[in-house]
Structure formats: C-alpha cells, structure tokens
C-alpha cells in the first residue's frame, strides 16, 4: 500500500538524518586537537637518522625484525643505569632477529661520543638533531622511553621509565620473531 510505503520512507529519512547528526556529535567528542600520541597497536612511524659514523639508518631497514627503540639523553640518570644492560644483551638478540636502535634527543656529538666511550656502547646510536622524530613523530615526553616494535612494524609496548636487566631481556624476547 502506498500509505505504508510513505511511512517507511519517512522513517528511513528521519533515521538517516538522526544517524548523521549522531555521527557528527560522536566525531566532535572523539576528535582531539592535541598532538597525536602513539599507542600500543599503532604502526611505528618510519624515520631516517644518521648514526655516529654518518651512516643513514631507517627504521624500515629492519622490517621482519623486532626493534628495541630507546630514546635517551646523556644527562638522564635512569638512561645511564639501563644502558649497560642493553649493551650486555643486545648482541645475543641481534642473532635472534631483535635490533637495538637508540635515539639521542638533539645533544651534541661531543656529549654523545663521550657517553658511548664511557659506557662502551656498540649498538647503533642515532642523534635526532631537529627533534623531528622524538617530538613530532613519536611525541616522546619522559626519558628514557622505549618502544618495542615487532617484526610487522607494530608497536607492542611502550615503556616510559627505567628498565631492570630482567625486564630488558623479557622485553627483547617479546618482540623476537619466531
């Protein structure tokens, strides 16, 4: 019957309009103007930084491997404490497909080199000169911050404090590709 059709049509139009308006409200509630903070489950943004020998290192170079991405500063006491443990275990995990990348935030080469010598670091150390990676892409606030990235480039865990030796080992294991 024509009358039923009209009623259905009306219901449909009203439903559609209400749905659009509800969607607009939901959008207003969820959209944030603040800078986006990375979360577990996000794809780790790719970047390109130079290591201490001037070699360009990209995150995407390590596709298929787990990446232990550590942001640090020479002046940060917990960074100093965890560095030796990272150094101690990184070689063993390199063979298991887990790579350590440590990103210093905009300090001088002198400071970073002295630090590397002092702690005898052998894993790649990159300097984020313009803070483009640490501030804009990764939005790192506290130091140290460590991102555990799995072989698919997905962030598995974000640690924003000092890690113990045991933690470091278990975190590296967690991103080990099978």
């Amino acid at each position: 019957m024509a009358k039923m059709d009209k009623k259905k049509k009306r219901l449909f139009i009203r439903g559609a309009i209400l749905l659009v308006l509800a969607a607009a409200i939901v959008f207003a509630l969820t959209s944030k103007k603040e800078t986006k903070v990375l979360a577990v489950g996000d794809k780790a943004p790719n970047f390109e930084l130079q290591d201490m020998n001037g070699k360009k290192v990209k995150l995407s170079d390590y596709e298929g491997q787990g990446v232990f991405l550590n942001f640090w500063g020479t002046w940060c006491p917990p960074c100093k404490k965890e560095m030796p443990y990272i150094e101690k275990h990184f070689k063993e995990f390199t063979n298991k497909g887990v790579q350590v990348l440590s990103v210093n935030i905009a300090e001088s080469e002198f400071k970073v080199n002295t630090f590397i010598d002092q702690y005898g670091l052998t894993f790649p150390v990159l300097i984020d000169k313009n803070k483009s990676v640490s501030r804009n892409s990764y939005n790192v606030v506290p130091l140290p911050t460590t991102m555990l990235i799995d072989k698919n480039g997905v962030i598995k865990q974000i640690v924003t404090r000092e890690m113990s030796e045991a933690e470091i080992v278990s975190l590296m294991e967690s991103i080990q590709p099978e």
Binding site: P45, N46, F47, E48, L49, L126, S132, V133, N136
Partner: peptide, 8 residues
C-alpha cells in the same frame, strides 16, 4: 618522500 629525521 623523505622520512622524518632525514637531513634531506
């Protein structure tokens, strides 16, 4: 096409 952090 260059990446964040690139000096390019």
């Amino acid at each position: 096409g260059s990446l964040p952090g690139s000096s390019d």
